[in-house]
Design a protein around this nucleic acid. Structure first.
Lengths: 318, 318
DNA sequence: GATGGCGATCACTTTTGGAGATGGCCATCA
DNA sequence: TGATGGCCATCTCCAAAAGTGATCGCCATC
């Protein structure tokens, strides 16, 4: 069994059709057929059921599929590892909740970009769910998400606590009052947003059914709509401090048990982190957890990191 | 980069010479040279330093090597997974401390062999160190070793407690007496034996330097020599109950903190266990930890397992 | 300075993979 | 019910890749 065959296999499985897989693989259908047959012979089991239109995986095929994916990931990682001589370089894609990106990341990112100009840094926004999937699938190297994350495939490092508050228009004088009104709308960033879920749970505990949603593309729009009285939202209180709306929305604190959320940085447990990621983590931990030692496995880069760390720390409280 | 190239690479790295690697790979040297060159081109780094005699890995090569090994392991596992339809079959190699094998495994093994006649079961004896290395390397599927095992690559399941005792000849009336004598010898199974290490620590805590060793191939020889007054040893007390020497050696108990050792079953965390291994674990847990639920991930096989479980339980206290 | 071990290179052969054409199967639809 | 279209299997042909064996050069060793 060769990794090349598995690439063919994976593409066929994904498309459910050899003809379309052939296109993706830049080859012809007869070829795909032949290699799948060869693979089936090599493993001694039939992998697809052939139908008049398309193919579907057999049980054996379903067992093989995750391995095909793991092998190709591993080969990619191997290539990166060979090229990674310890100096951070190449692409580094960091996922982040939009709120985290807005409130926390700017100084860290500028510090990192300055320290490691050879790294092409990209931020990929998303919800906790989306980002966890992206990390597991390998399309981002790591992500700041709403913790705790229990997934055994993922490494989780606590970064900082956020205090969530309910935001409403200035016309709202108390949450009870609002709840009494009965016609609440939630302004959320995205349907899968973890803060939305929390807000719904929070309302549910107070006996209020899940209200209607309004989805917005950006934090600013949400705040504007909340200020205008179109709905309420749940967001880290800190988001207001860097916002023009800090004086135009009412903030309702929550009991600590409901207000405190931990933001964690997750990354694949099984993948050896690239130097670029290692350096990022070192900076992030210095920025967000200055009292802590760098965790085990974190390769420090001597004076450079410490110096950058200080820069980041100085900027942190903007 | 293809898995085939990595096989070549790994063989060359292991032999430190292309010519000898070629032999192992059933091909000629020129071929190996060519494929290594191709691989180097594919990853964009040179992997070996060529010397007049043999080759050595470059830094980049050293980074690649573990991936080469992981890829080939993964491919093998994939093959097994495809062929594994849920019915335990094929080869299952279980590592075990010799004492554990002697005292505990017989009923479990006979029960397993009866329940799953299609599995070719093999027991691979060794010390804790050796067995852990063997599990990590994949040459055994799992092993009973002396716990705790902290290795993050390994899954550890507690199985049972042993009570260690110091064994000496009947002429020895107290340990203090023995220690005073000053000319102790330790009879051990193997230099890497974890019980030997414990015994040395135990003596060290009492201010006695590491004494001379006598190595023996089998438990019976050790016991015979201890009985004959040639030395002392540290072994699970239970070993005597199934031994002809139970009346001819003196047993010295130890305080619980030193006496209690946990035997655990370790297996690779990253490898999906074969059906044969899963079934083995289910039986082992039923045999050794009858009060416990089968742990998560353990696939039970309905009535068959329960029935076999009872059989094993009935035999357990031989 | 002869020897032996080992890698690089080259010309040559064999094997494998890929391309393109064709045929068969089957669901769909007129 | 026959035409159509989508899809897979098979076959032949060709090109690329992998493998072979002979030879050369390097260098440590004796």
């Amino acid at each position: 069994m060769e990794s090349g065959d598995l690439r063919f296999f994976e593409a066929v499985a994904r498309h459910g059709a050899m003809t379309r897989a052939a296109e993706e693989l830049h080859t012809v259908q007869s070829n795909v057929t032949a290699r799948i047959r060869a693979l089936e012979q090599a493993v001694g089991a039939s992998l697809f059921e052939r139908h008049s239109v398309g193919v579907t995986l057999t049980d054996a095929g379903r067992r093989l599929l995750p391995y095909a994916q793991r092998v190709s990931r591993l080969l990619e990682e191997a290539k990166r590892a060979v090229q990674d001589d310890g100096t951070p370089r190449g692409r580094l894609i960091i996922g982040s909740l939009e709120t985290t990106a807005a409130m926390r990341l700017a100084p860290l990112l500028t510090g990192y970009a300055k320290a490691y100009p050879q790294v092409e840094l990209a931020i990929h926004p998303g919800t906790t769910c989306e980002l966890i999937a992206a990390v597991k699938q390998g399309s981002v190297d790591g992500a700041f998400v709403c913790g705790p994350v229990l997934d055994p495939e993922l490494d989780q490092r606590p970064m900082f606590q956020e205090e969530l508050s309910v935001l409403a228009s200035m016309a709202v004088h108390s949450l009870d009052h609002l709840i009494g009104a009965g016609n609440i709308r939630l302004a959320v960033l995205r349907a899968g947003c973890s803060y939305r879920q929390r807000l719904e749970e929070l309302l549910a505990r107070r006996g209020i059914p899940a209200p209607r949603l309004m989805e917005f593309g950006t934090l600013e729009t949400i705040l504007a709509c909340v200020a205008a009285g179109l709905g309420i939202t749940l967001l880290p209180r800190r988001i207001l401090s860097s916002s023009q709306f800090s004086d135009s929305v009412a903030v309702f604190g929550l009991p600590p048990s409901e207000a405190q959320v931990e933001t964690v940085f997750v990354s694949r447990r099984d993948a050896t982190p690239s130097s670029a990621l290692t350096a990022f983590l070192a900076l992030a931990e210095q920025a967000f957890r200055p009292g802590m030692e760098a965790s085990e496995g974190t390769v420090l880069n001597g004076s450079l990191l410490r110096q950058v760390g200080k820069t980041v720390l100085a900027h942190q409280n903007i």
